[in-house]
């Protein structure tokens, strides 16, 4: 038994023949197991979807109740038989409801990580290390220059800036699902008690987090003319909104962006960001390396991101490593936001 006997790469995504299912397929498929709710992993139109309760709720919120014909709820740690394979979902620490998927067949264990991180996040269940024979890891930040500092330190920089520029609104670009709510929670942990202002595009998903029992403090939706009066306040919006018509009402805002990409100065500058906050929901280089070693796997497949560096690193350590060039995964929310909000 080897990893490629269990999972194969197809144009629709990773396919498991033993269970006749796909994982995070990018095309409509008869049966899909979904790791988490980001749009590049969770698409609508599959025949049957298995995911955690939270992920199913996120998909329904985004695509409507008819996003799939049948759904099956997965509980963290519970083993379920699908065809000949035994499948279980385990926390990935990426966003609310995110999961790694463990597939067991004839004693061989293979883990599809989905997106994951090991850093502090009050809004979702922390990553769980799974011993396995083969590990399929994401590599969004698969270069040794990506080392995320403690998110609490970065939030401290944001609050310092609010104090240093009490007349300027602080627009924090953050992906709508996951990052925005994690920012809210981290800002609350740092002791900020003022209301936090939200762009309209992230309201519903934030409500879903609240309904799931995640404490986020008071948030307010921004309406029209108020924008000019938000000096010293924190406003969370989709990253593209900071450069759109929507941002115009603010008077001389400080534009911040919470993302692992902010580690690279040129990327921050190209985006017109004045306060880059290195806060990511993906594993950084050190976490990727540590996680691969923690799983004690002999084989590792590296997907979506900078595969080459991590493959090189794993090979140096005697692991069987290969890149999986899966197409269709990337950052969500990269499109321009609607100007209205």
């Amino acid at each position: 038994m080897a990893a490629h006997d269990i999972l194969t790469q197809t144009p629709a995504g990773l396919y498991c023949q033993a269970g006749d299912f796909y994982i995070d397929p990018v095309r409509a498929s008869p049966r899909a197991l979904i790791t988490h709710g980001h749009a590049d992993h969770a698409r609508s139109g599959h025949g049957a979807v298995m995911a955690t309760r939270e992920t199913l709720a996120i998909m329904e919120l985004r695509y409507g109740a008819d996003f799939t014909t049948t759904r099956q709820m997965a509980t963290y740690g519970e083993k379920v038989r699908i065809g000949e394979a035994q499948v279980s979902f385990h926390p990935a620490g990426h966003v609310l409801g995110s999961a790694q998927i463990l597939i067991e067949l004839a004693g061989y264990r293979i883990v599809v990580s989905g997106d994951y991180k090991r850093g502090h996040d009050p809004t979702c269940t922390p990553f769980e290390v799974l011993r396995c024979d083969a590990f399929i890891s994401e590599a969004t930040f698969g270069l040794p220059v990506f080392r995320h500092p403690d998110a609490r330190h970065e939030v401290g920089r944001l609050l310092d800036s609010c104090r240093a520029f009490p007349d300027r609104a602080h627009l924090v670009g953050a992906y709508s699902l996951g990052k925005a709510q994690r920012m809210l929670a981290l800002i609350r942990e740092a002791g900020w008690q003022r209301p936090i202002w939200l762009h309209g595009a992230m309201e519903k998903i934030t409500e879903l987090y609240r309904a799931e029992g995640v404490a986020l403090g008071e948030t307010r939706k921004i309406v029209g003319k108020e924008r000019a009066k938000l000096g010293g306040e924190i406003v969370i919006c989709p990253p593209s909104a900071t450069r759109d018509l929507w941002a115009r009402g603010f008077s001389d805002p400080v534009v911040a962006f919470a993302s692992g990409w902010m580690r690279i100065r040129a990327r921050a500058r190209q985006g017109g960001v004045q306060l880059p906050l290195v806060i990511s929901d993906h594993a950084d280089w050190d976490e990727l390396c540590a996680t691969i070693l923690d799983t004690r796997c002999q084989e590792v497949w590296i997907t979506h991101g900078a595969e080459d560096a991590l493959v090189h690193w794993a090979t140096q350590r005697g692991l069987h490593a290969r890149p999986l060039h899966l197409i269709g995964y990337g950052e969500e929310d990269d499109t321009e936001a609607e100007p209205a909000a």
Binding site: V145, R263, A309
Partner: peptide
């Protein structure tokens, strides 16, 4: 590792910054 350094420097494009991060 020189290979990792070369990949990183190529990506970042600035020596001081690459060294500071790595």
């Amino acid at each position: 590792d020189p290979v990792l350094f070369a990949m990183s420097y190529d990506y970042v494009g600035d020596l001081s910054e690459t060294v500071a991060l790595m």
